[in-house]
Structure formats: structure tokens, C-alpha cells
């Protein structure tokens, strides 16, 4: 089972990286979202895997899975949403303002600031 999770995280990362390197904003957003999944799952996995052992205390139950990564990942999921929302609006704003959704804006003149500035 561990191999399945590890390879799933790997696949999500690979797809995330590939899409993040595209030239338009939408695939970049999708790529970053996929990377967020991968990172959240990875953090979660650092607590090691356990089946049927949720960290909710019950009388007579002794084994629980690691609660700490779960708490960290929970807030991470919400924060990833916040981040996704911000970049969606940034992408939208740049598209509406420049009518182009490319992510690379070419710099016409490199900032030459030699000598005295």
C-alpha cells in the first residue's frame, strides 16, 4: 500500500511540475493545485500509514495514527485554497487588463543602473 501512495504522490508531483512549466495561466494554476495535493499528501504520509485507527480517542482503543501531521495538513489544505484563490484572481486580473493569459511578460529593457543611481 505504501508504494501505491508514494507513486500517487510522485505522479501528482510530476503532473504538477509539468503543468506549472506551461506558458498560460490556467494550466499553471492546475499544476500548482496538483502540487498542493502532492505536498499535502506527502506531509500527511510523514505520520506513516495506518488503517482504521483515526486519532479520535475511544475507551479501550490503544493504537491511533499520528495526529500531528493531520493537524498540520488540515490548515495547509485551507491555506492552499486561499493561495489558489489569490492566483486565480491574479490570472484573471492580468488577462482582463492585458487580454493575454501568458505567464511570461517579456522585459523590454533590462534595468541598467550602472554608475550613479
Amino acid at each position: 500500500m505504501e508504494m501505491l501512495l508514494a507513486s500517487a504522490i510522485g505522479a501528482l508531483s510530476a503532473a504538477g511540475i509539468y503543468l506549472m512549466l506551461r506558458l498560460r495561466s490556467f494550466p499553471v494554476i492546475i499544476g500548482i493545485s496538483l502540487l498542493s495535493y502532492a505536498v499535502n499528501l506527502f506531509l500527511f504520509a510523514t505520520g506513516r500509514l495506518a488503517v482504521n485507527a483515526p486519532p479520535v480517542l475511544r475507551d479501550g482503543v490503544e493504537t491511533y495514527t499520528d495526529p500531528l501531521p493531520q493537524a498540520l495538513v488540515l490548515t495547509a489544505i485551507v491555506i492552499s485554497f486561499g493561495m489558489t484563490a489569490v492566483i486565480v484572481i491574479m490570472a484573471l486580473g492580468s488577462y482582463l487588463s492585458s487580454r493575454s493569459d501568458t505567464v511570461n511578460i517579456t522585459r523590454d529593457t533590462p534595468a541598467e543602473q550602472e554608475g550613479d543611481a
Partner: peptide, 12 residues
Amino acid sequence: GVAVTGLTYAIL
């Protein structure tokens, strides 16, 4: 992707 898979597996 391969690196992340390897890292995760090594941890797990």
C-alpha cells in the same frame, strides 16, 4: 516525480 516517489517511499 521519481524523486518525490523515492523520498516518500523511503520515509514510509
